[in-house]
């Protein structure tokens, strides 16, 4: 089958979703790990930032890769959404969901919320065009990301948006994580129920760990 044939096949499209989803999940974890350096105080995260800035080629390659993956994921997500909608034009008067979950039925919406949040997040912290915070240099002449984050996470609208973004991400992963294993065909019948449970746990873990940062900032533990 040609690449074109693969990409127009509905199983092919699902595999694209699964593979790109896997990279995005990977990014979510790497980002979490990077962010965790904030717990080490200003020294940790500012150091981390400086390290990254010292390797512009790597950072830009990485960004380029992630953006490509992201665009593919969104594009095929939309494509599948429209095709699937088209395959079921008439709705039932009553429809009981037997196994489908809130998460599985709303992937397109949670995905869109995550997309919106991501844009906001980039504009907020990476390009810094939304907020009033400025990225100053700290006493060691490093970019003071630490202060910027602390400041950013004390503004109520920002916290609310952050929370909703994470919630959407949680539901998205909740379905997406186990779904990617199913789509890539690595699930055996025995592993299936276990993986669904693990998927839920994992999504919750992502939500909790990302929420922890604003939580500790609000609680005043990091200041």
């Amino acid at each position: 089958m040609s690449i074109k044939g693969f990409l127009s096949n509905l199983v092919g499209k699902k595999i694209v979703m699964a593979v790109t989803g896997m990279f995005l999940l990977f990014f979510v974890l790497v980002h979490l790990l990077g962010n965790s350096s904030i717990y080490l105080g200003p020294d940790g995260i500012n150091n981390y930032t400086q390290k990254l800035q010292s390797m512009p080629l790597f950072v830009w390659l990485f960004r380029f890769f992630m953006i490509t993956v992201f665009i593919i994921h969104v594009y095929f997500g939309f494509l599948l959404y429209l095709e699937n909608k088209n395959a079921k034009p008439d709705k039932y008067a009553i429809k009981k969901s037997l196994r489908a979950t809130f998460a599985s039925k709303n992937m397109i919406w949670t995905g869109l919320v995550v997309f919106g949040f991501l844009l906001y997040h980039l504009l907020h912290f990476t390009f810094r065009v939304i907020s009033i915070e400025r990225l100053n240099l700290d006493f060691m002449q490093r970019p003071d990301v630490y202060s910027m984050v602390i400041q950013g996470m004390t503004e109520v609208p920002s916290i609310v948006l952050y929370f909703f973004g994470l919630l959407a991400l949680m539901f998205h992963i909740f379905h997406g994580f186990q779904s990617l294993f199913q789509t890539l065909g690595v699930l055996s019948e025995k592993m299936h129920p276990g993986l669904i449970n693990f998927s839920k746990l994992f999504a919750f873990f992502v939500f909790l760990s990302y929420s922890l940062i604003p939580a500790v900032i609000i609680a005043g533990i990091l200041r």
Binding site: M1, G5, S8, N9, L10, V11, K13, K14, L80, E83, N84, N86, A87, K88, S97, L98, R99, A100, T101, S104, K105, M107, H175, Q178, S179, Q182, T183
Partner: peptide
């Protein structure tokens, strides 16, 4: 390959792993 192509051609949707 043939069967999944035929399925698409007939107007069936793709699997979203709802397990319904």
């Amino acid at each position: 390959c043939l069967m999944t192509e035929a399925m698409q051609k007939e107007g069936f949707g793709a699997c979203s792993n709802h397990y319904e």
